[in-house]
Design a binder for these strands. Structure first.
Lengths: 355, 355
DNA sequence: GTGAAAGCGCTAACAT
DNA sequence: ATGTTAGCGCTTTCAC
C-alpha cells in the first residue's frame, strides 16, 4: 500500500528522529547499541531499503562506478568485468557497464554522460586520442586500463617481458623467421606487442614479418592463414588468442600442421586448453588490473580527478602444445646470456597471483 | 572552481527561474523556442550536465535498469548483455550489471539491493526457487529470461522445436542411439532441452542416454568424452556449445572422430565456426530476448510489478560440419510424416531476425 | 509562457 | 547519545 518505507516513516513509527535512524545505518558506533538493534529490527520488519539516489544527492557520493569497454563480446573483457564487479560489490559499489562498440565517439559520449553520476570511471582499451584522454583525465575521476597516457591513472598489462621469453623460447627451438599477427591498430596493447616483437627480433637478428587481422576476429585471422604460411615463417606470435586460434584454423585448412610446420603463441590466455593442440600463450592478470582500477577509484573519494600513476602487471608465458622445434634442420640458436633481457624466470605454467 | 553547474546556477546566470531551465530540458514544448535556445546555449557553454540522482529522487524514475546474470564469463551472456545495454542506451537508460557467480543467495541479495534503485530488473537464468521468484515478481519490476514461472514476465529462448528438428535430422542420418549431455541442473534451459530430447526420442522409438557435465565447462565435458563414446551412442546433443566442444575434445583424445564415428549438435551458437569441424548447433536469438526484456521494463513505468507474460523466441537448427550418417550400416529411418512435429522449416543456416 | 514554493529521502552540521 | 534544521539538485503543482 504505502510502498517502500522511508527513514522518516521508520523514525515516526519508532518515535525517534530520522537522523537517528540514518545513523543506525551509516554510523552505528555513534549510537547506543540498543538503539541500533531497535532500528535494525524495525527496518527489517518493514522491509526498509535505503534509497541510493537520496543518499547520493545528500552526500555527493554516487555509490557506483562506471565501466566502459570496447566490446563485451570479446573474450578478453568478461573476466575483467567480472573481477571489477565483484570487487566493487565488496566495497559497496554498484557498476554501470557500457559498451562502446569500438567507436571512439560513442566512447567519448558515454564518458561524458556517465562521469557525473558515478564515483569514477574505468575505461578499458580506450580508442580515444591521447590528447582527449589527458583532457578527460584532468576533470574526471577515471582509471584507464591498457592505455598508456602520461599523467593519467593507468594500469597496464605489460607483455613485453613475456614476449621476450616467448621469442627466446622460439629461438631456442631453432626458429629464425617469425611473424607477428596484430590486432586492432588503435589498441595500445597491439602497439606494445608489436614493438616488443620488433625490438627483440632486431636485437637478435631474427627475421620478423608483420601481418594484421582486421577486424581481430577468428574469421579474419583464419583468412590470413594462407598468407602467413606462404610467407615462410616457422613461428607466429599473435596479438591475442582469438587471432591465434583463427590462424590455427587457417593453417589446418591449408594442411599446415601446428606445431610441426609452424609454432604459434597467443596472448591473453582467454582460451585455456580448448584448442587443439592446446594453445601456448601469454597469460595476463586481468582480474588484478580490474581490482587495482576499482581500488583507485574508491580512494580519495573527494578529489575531482585521480593523480597520475602507472601501475603494471606483467604477463607470463605459458607453454602448452603449439610450440615445437623448427621443421627445417637449422641448428637451434642459444642466445647470448649477456644480452639485456631475462631469458628465464617468467616461463611458468600458471599465471601468478594478484597484485 | 565551482565544479559542475546546477540548474539553479544556470537560472541565476540567465536571470530566470530554475523551473524554466528545468523545463527547457524536460518539456521544451511548454516554453518559447527562444527561451529553450537561450538555455541550451548557456548550458552548453557552462558544461551543464543534469544530475541523475536529483532527478531520480524528484521523479521517482531511476533512469537505469539492473541486469543480473549467473556468470558473465560464460559465452552465452556477453551478447545478451551487449544487446540489453545497447537497447537500454537507446531508451536513455543506463544499466547496472551484476554477476551472481551461480549462487542463489547472492542472486537473491543482489535483487533486493538493486531493485529499489532501478526502473526494473532483468534476471537471466535465475537459480532461485520458483516460489521465491513468484514472490519477487509480485513486488518488483522484473523480467526473467530463460526461467519459466507462471504469472511472471518472462522471455524464453525455446529450443524444443529445434531439438525436434535436430533429432529428426539425426534419425534421417540413421542414428538410433543418442545421448543428451546436460548442463547446470538448476537451469530451466537444461530441463527444457532434456525433456525435449526425452519426449521426441520416446515418441519415435529412439534410444536415449543421459549424461551431465558438472560443472558445465569445457574441461568437465571433455572428461566425459570417454564414457559417452563408450556408451555406444552414435550421436549426441549437448546442452550448449561449450559442452559440445568439450565433448569433441574428449572424443579427439580418445580417437573417436566427429562426425564419422559420432555426430554432435550443440546449443546456443556461441562458438560460430571456430571449432573443427565447425559445430552444428541450435542458434538462439539472445539479442531479441534482451531487447524484449528491456522494452518490458520501460513500459508502464508507474506500476510496482510487471504483468505476467510469456514471450517466446524459437531457436533454429543450424547445420555445419559435426553431423553425418551413422557409422554402422543400419538403414536410415524416415520418420512418419503424420507425427505431430515439424520435420522441416526450421533448419536454416543463419538465425532469424528480431521481432 | 514563466515564476514561486514545496518536496522527493537522505545526511550533516549544530544543538542539547 | 539523540533531536532539529537545513539543504543536496531537480521536478512539479499552482499561481500569475
Amino acid at each position: 500500500m504505502t510502498g517502500r518505507p522511508t527513514i522518516t516513516q521508520l523514525a515516526a513509527e519508532l518515535g525517534i528522529a530520522p537522523s537517528t535512524v540514518s545513523r543506525a545505518f551509516t554510523r552505528p558506533n555513534l549510537l547506543k547499541p540498543e538503539t541500533v538493534a531497535l532500528v535494525q529490527k524495525a527496518a527489517e520488519a518493514a522491509g526498509y531499503v535505503p534509497n541510493h539516489h537520496a543518499r547520493a544527492l545528500s552526500t555527493g557520493r554516487a555509490g557506483a562506478i562506471g565501466l566502459i569497454v570496447p566490446d563485451i563480446a570479446n573474450p578478453f573483457f568478461p573476466p575483467l568485468v567480472r573481477a571489477a564487479q565483484n570487487y566493487a560489490s565488496d566495497l559497496g559499489l554498484s557498476v554501470f557497464l557500457a559498451d562502446t562498440d569500438e567507436d571512439p565517439n560513442r566512447e567519448d559520449r558515454l564518458i561524458s554522460r556517465m562521469a557525473p553520476q558515478v564515483e569514477g570511471l574505468i575505461v578499458v582499451s580506450s580508442r580515444l586520442a591521447s590528447s582527449r584522454i589527458r583532457q578527460i583525465a584532468d576533470s574526471q575521476r577515471v582509471a584507464f586500463i591498457n592505455r598508456d597516457v602520461p599523467e593519467t591513472y593507468r594500469v597496464l598489462l605489460d607483455t613485453t617481458a613475456a614476449i621476450r621469453s616467448a621469442l627466446t623460447h622460439l629461438a631456442e627451438l631453432g626458429h629464425r623467421r617469425i611473424a607477428y599477427v596484430g590486432g586492432p591498430p588503435q589498441s595500445w596493447a597491439n602497439k606494445q606487442r608489436h614493438s616488443a616483437v620488433d625490438n627483440f627480433t632486431k636485437a637478435h637478428a631474427l627475421e620478423v614479418m608483420h601481418f594484421s587481422a582486421d577486424p581481430g576476429t577468428y574469421e579474419a585471422a583464419k583468412a590470413l592463414g594462407d598468407s602467413v604460411a606462404a610467407s615462410g615463417v616457422t613461428a607466429v606470435i599473435a596479438f591475442d588468442d582469438v587471432i591465434a586460434h583463427g590462424l590455427m584454423g587457417g593453417f589446418a585448412a591449408a594442411g599446415v600442421e601446428v606445431p610441426k610446420d609452424v609454432s604459434v603463441i597467443g596472448c591473453d590466455d582467454t582460451l585455456a586448453t580448448t584448442t587443439f593442440p592446446a594453445l601456448s600463450t601469454i597469460a595476463v592478470n586481468v582480474g588484478a588490473a580490474a581490482r587495482r582500477a576499482v581500488a583507485a577509484l574508491s580512494e580519495n573519494p573527494g578529489s575531482t580527478s585521480l593523480t597520475g600513476a602507472r601501475v603494471i602487471f606483467e604477463g607470463t608465458l605459458v607453454l602448452r602444445g603449439t610450440t615445437g622445434p623448427v621443421r627445417s634442420a637449422s641448428s637451434p640458436l642459444t642466445l647470448e646470456p649477456e644480452l639485456d633481457y631475462p631469458t628465464t624466470g617468467s616461463v611458468q605454467v600458471r599465471r601468478g597471483s594478484d597484485s
